[in-house]
């Protein structure tokens, strides 16, 4: 029997399952909660509002510059809580493993997930493991769910966004998507680009602590990038949105990589960036707060919320002074061929 690789029996609920949990998973993830394994984790929380979210993560390759699927799964779910105005309290982490996956890869991914959770001060309190055949998935699928406590005074939502509000972006675009593409099979090109994968709850927490109800809406522009986030915002609030390309923070390496591949940086995924819509008079203060945190050092005010419109559009004034619209991308943009 190959002890280095995942077998179907590892997900069967028998001895091998118990061994995998005891020898691989718990030593990495379980150290925070020693004791008997029960069917559910019990959490004590103060009275207030809870935020609850879940997300499944599939990424190829499983490891990429600046992170891996484990760190991604932890930070991604923390960020979903963070932009809902919550501070994360506990996470679940469930694995769907492909038969034949190297156990060393699993260890690496779990170690990185545990590290990301520890750095963020959040516990992974429950989980599950299943194994599927070789056709069932590519390497592994990770699902995380998270609960968090919503900050007092936070009132976030599309309905809170008003004409004249300022749109802030915490940093440069496209680092995650492009660093993943840069090491994808058949397309590898060397860059020193690293995924921006990071937990945003400190950033959102300090914004809300200072500005409370003046923060009207937050979102992390992941798949579909800034374009999807703003297009969705405009559609949901029924107002035009105006942004300035010149104001958008740029990572020159990411820009060159996007140009080479024919991709629009606005549509490339980010995993550690924040879009915040803030009341205009508080925007300078919001910018100051974002810039004082290492994850928001390059933050900028990139645009404003405009008038109500029946077919609301996101319009961008380009660096050269032209105008274009910014739309929800169709799906995954494909690198060009010539």
């Amino acid at each position: 029997m190959n002890r280095e690789r995942i077998q179907l029996a590892h997900g069967g609920g028998g001895q091998l399952s118990a061994e995998l949990i005891a020898e691989v998973i718990l030593p990495i993830l379980g150290s925070q909660r020693p004791g008997r394994l029960t069917d559910a984790a019990c959490l004590s929380v103060d009275a207030g509002r809870l935020a609850f979210t879940t997300d499944s993560y599939v990424v190829q390759p499983l490891e990429f510059p600046g992170g891996d699927i484990g760190k991604l799964a932890v930070c991604g779910t923390i960020n979903d809580l963070a932009v809902a105005g919550a501070q994360p309290r506990a996470l679940s982490l469930s694995l769907v493993l492909q038969e034949g996956l190297a156990i060393s890869t699993l260890r690496k991914v779990l170690t990185s997930a545990a590290g990301a959770a520890r750095d963020a001060g959040v516990e992974i309190v429950t989980g599950d493991t299943k194994v599927v055949g070789r056709e069932g998935c590519d390497g592994m699928i990770v699902n995380t769910a998270g609960v968090g406590v919503v900050a007092e005074g936070a009132e976030l939502g599309f309905e809170r966004v008003e004409q004249g509000d300022c749109i802030l972006l915490s940093g440069a675009l496209g680092e995650h998507g492009l660093s993943v593409v840069s090491c994808r099979k058949g397309l590898s090109f060397a860059t020193d680009l690293r995924s921006d994968c990071a937990a945003l709850h400190e950033l959102t927490g300090s914004l809300l602590a200072s500005l409370g109800g003046n923060v009207h809406f937050m979102r992390d522009p992941t798949r579909g990038g800034l374009a999807a986030t703003l297009a969705e915002l405009a559609a949901a609030i029924g107002r035009d949105v105006e942004i300035q390309e010149e104001a958008i923070p740029v990572n020159p390496v990411a820009r060159s990589a996007a140009e080479m591949l024919g991709l629009d940086l606005l549509t490339v995924a980010n995993e550690g960036k924040l879009v915040a819509v803030v009341a205009a008079r508080q925007a300078p203060r919001a910018l100051e707060i974002l810039r004082s945190h290492r994850l928001g050092a390059k933050a900028a005010i990139i645009g404003t919320v405009g008038e109500a419109a029946s077919g609301p559009l996101v319009e961008m004034q380009t660096v050269v002074g032209g105008r274009r619209i910014v739309q929800m991308p169709y799906g995954e943009e494909l690198p060009r061929i010539c």
Partner: peptide, 16 residues
């Protein structure tokens, strides 16, 4: 050239 087509539109050169 497809890339010219795309850059023209992305940079808003027609409107400019």
């Amino acid at each position: 050239c497809g890339t010219h087509t795309m850059v023209l539109a992305r940079a808003g050169l027609r409107s400019l």
